[in-house]
């Protein structure tokens, strides 16, 4: 028997030695633990998208959808309006694509393991296609400027995405990336409307 510093038997150690060596759980817990340890089969779901990101993406989709609806209605309402191109702004119809189909179809990531979603991509494609149809009205230097700036937006989102790969979950990067996607939609929508506006009524 162990003795304490005073040389007397240690009562605490004695009490401890009388305790049972193990306690059986009331029910089998292993099944639940094993299920949580098992790797997920879908790699896209490795990391859950934050709830705010879904809400934000939904807001973007809503804005885009309403913009498209407004643009469609405006065009329908002015179907008989004269459409013409003056000499100063006329360009060949074989103008190169400012928003290339491959670029507009590119996936939009949101850091590692996340995709922005098919609805956003579909809307971006529709906007880019509509804009492409109107770009013949712009002088070559205008198209060039626009192409350069859309490339600038894409470059910025690629750069932030690359940083997010290294620093996943960084709130500043996530905020900036979200806003750059929003800006791209805003630019596509605004430019499309600006070019279309010469034959449509401008609401006051």
């Amino acid at each position: 028997m162990n003795q304490g510093p005073s040389g007397r038997p240690d009562r605490l150690e004695e009490a401890l030695s009388q305790l049972p060596r193990g306690i059986e759980p009331g029910r089998d817990l292993w099944a639940g633990i094993a299920a949580r340890l098992e790797p997920r089969s879908d790699p896209a779901r490795v990391r859950a998208v934050p709830r705010w990101a879904w809400a934000a993406a939904a807001a973007v989709v809503l804005v885009v959808a309403s913009s498209l609806m407004t643009a469609t209605l405006l065009r329908r309402g002015t179907a008989t309006t004269v459409q013409t191109v003056p000499a100063q702004v006329a360009v060949p119809s074989t103008a190169p694509a400012v928003v290339p189909a491959a670029a507009s179809a590119a996936t939009a990531a949101f850091g590692p393991g996340h995709r922005v979603g098919p609805a956003y991509l579909a809307n971006r494609r529709v906007l880019a296609r509509e804009l492409e149809g109107r770009l013949a009205r712009l002088p070559p230097e205008g198209r060039e400027q626009l192409a350069k700036n859309i490339a600038e937006l894409r470059r910025a989102s690629a750069e932030i995405n690359a940083a997010l790969e290294l620093h996943p979950g960084d709130p500043l990067l996530e905020e900036l990336l979200f806003n750059i996607y929003q800006d791209e939609i805003l630019v596509l929508t605004n430019v499309d409307r600006l070019i279309a506006a010469d034959t449509t009524r401008i609401p006051l």
């Binding site: 070019i195 506006a197 401008i202 006051l204």
Partner: peptide, 22 residues
């Protein structure tokens, strides 16, 4: 609304919505 036309406004006290492509 203009496409390539320059636009100048002065002395207007109401709201203004001005658009130009280039």
């Amino acid at each position: 609304n203009t496409v390539s036309a320059d636009l100048g406004v002065q002395g207007v006290r109401g709201s203004q919505r001005l658009q130009s492509v280039s």
